[in-house]
Amino acid sequence: MFTSVTLALWQGFLVTIKLFALTLLFSLPLGLPIAIGAMSNNKIIKLPLQFLIWVIRGTPLMLQLLVIYYGPGIFFGINIWGTGENGRFIASLVAFVVNYACYFAEIYRGGIQSIPVGQFEAGKVLGMTSFQIMKDIVLLQVIKKIIPPISNEVITLVKDTSLARVIAVYEIIWSGQAFIKSNGIIWPLFYTGAFYLLFSFLLTVGFAKMEKKLSYFR
């Protein structure tokens, strides 16, 4: 019994990891243009992005999942996601990417703005281009500053993936819950916690290593 439960949960966990990894793959880079746009002096760029960040951070991710999945069908009469499992997965991926990109954007913005203006000026008086200042002076300092908040978000994401269940994405919680109906046992649901714990432990170790690697400067 234990083996078959483990195997079933593993199937769900694969979906969880896939959602987690793809969300990071797209939202980490997407956060950067959002951050730069939100700091822009051009109001036509800045204001819509600040509005987007406000809406995304100000509403529950669960609600965003529902709106993104059902919204197109309800408001425009077209179900762009289709009805299959694949469509639901893509809809949830879009919701997660947009949500996390906005959170990452705020972290990037804070990181860039925390670099002392003297660093930019020192680069300027040495005749460096804006691009060189960003790439060779500011970037590594920003990365060092944002690793702790990014690691927080990433570990939150591991657990947030369970929200995809609300639009019937077969992730690990669902696979555990299924045993209540089919076999009348509840322990597989609790057992899913072990998967989350193990995974977030590995992430914590990974981030601690990165932090240590950048601890040679202040």
Binding site: P116, E121, A122, V125, I137, L140, Y216, R218
Partner: peptide, 12 residues
């Protein structure tokens, strides 16, 4: 050339 009050060396 410019030497600043706060040095502004690149920490990394």
């Amino acid at each position: 050339g410019m030497v600043f009050q706060q040095f502004n060396l690149f920490p990394q």
